[in-house]
Design a binder for these strands. Sequence first.
DNA 1: GAACATATTGGTAATGATTACTATTTCTAA
DNA 2: TTAGAAATAGTAATCATTACCAATATGTTC
Lengths: 143, 143
Amino acid sequence: MVILEELKKVASHPAADELYELVRRRLPRVSLGTVYRNLELLCESGMVRKLEYGGSQRRYDGDATHHYHLRCVSCGRVEDAPIKPVSEIEESLRKMSDYEIIGHHVEFVGICPECKRKAPRTATQTKRALRKEKKHGTERITN
Amino acid sequence: MVILEELKKVASHPAADELYELVRRRLPRVSLGTVYRNLELLCESGMVRKLEYGGSQRRYDGDATHHYHLRCVSCGRVEDAPIKPVSEIEESLRKMSDYEIIGHHVEFVGICPECKRKAPRTATQTKRALRKEKKHGTERITN
DNA sequence: GAACATATTGGTAATGATTACTATTTCTAA
DNA sequence: TTAGAAATAGTAATCATTACCAATATGTTC
Ligand SMILES: [Mn+2]
Ligand SMILES: [Mn+2]
Ligand SMILES: [Zn+2]
Ligand SMILES: [Zn+2]
């Protein structure tokens, strides 16, 4: 319950260890293993979504409804993309493929307003950042 | 060169160790580290794409042009989705977000024809497979 | 070609996120 | 209470990826 509550409280799509720190404030004796185990159970029950895009750590999302994400290549922040999913895209693929299509995921990559302000980049710098990000995953943010 | 050639030969989006085995047939003394190192260089030079969707291993794509992917939740196969990318979706997001949008990735999930034939699934079984797949990543395929 | 500087490699160790394991604790229901 | 079941904390194991470095290969200048 506490794990789910804390996950729903934040919009930051935290990784397991970040969520662990949040949960610890309320349950100081909880273990990281318990966080992982229950996140898995919550995913299975459909109350939590596991995000497995770029980076070296999985992120978890307390909002299990279908929506897209937007990741800042500079600071690693992941936000919900403020557009609604286009289900028609699945239909058009069904016409072209023999797969039984179950769903789709979309991740936009970009630079968040804060990072734009802090360090406006040339196109070259942006490409470099993208590479570095792909290489190392992105820094943790303390949002 | 050999690494890039072998990667371009296959349509299976192999993981590093799978590609390592392919390269070894031509360069028996090559090391896995060399494969990783050069894949990184090829990514940086833009000739190879690194796929970081689900599963526990990264996959590599010798086709660096923008395209979508289609993953079978049953066997783990990853194919190119036979539809063209919709760039308009980035435009519509630009209107709604202050991010500087750089690009987007799409992964469809479904069941490939072969798996459908081998083990037709009920909706419940499919959901279960999806969970298991999310949990363990998917089996290696020998395509 | 010899001598040197530079770049790349193979082999192996280190890293780090996730998972597995297990003794102990907590819950449940008679 | 009390026995059995379920969950947990703490720790070990796993395994994909990176880091490291001595050895080898490559290129360059004379
Ligand atoms: Mn979200
Ligand atoms: Mn592809
Ligand atoms: Zn940012
Ligand atoms: Zn399949």
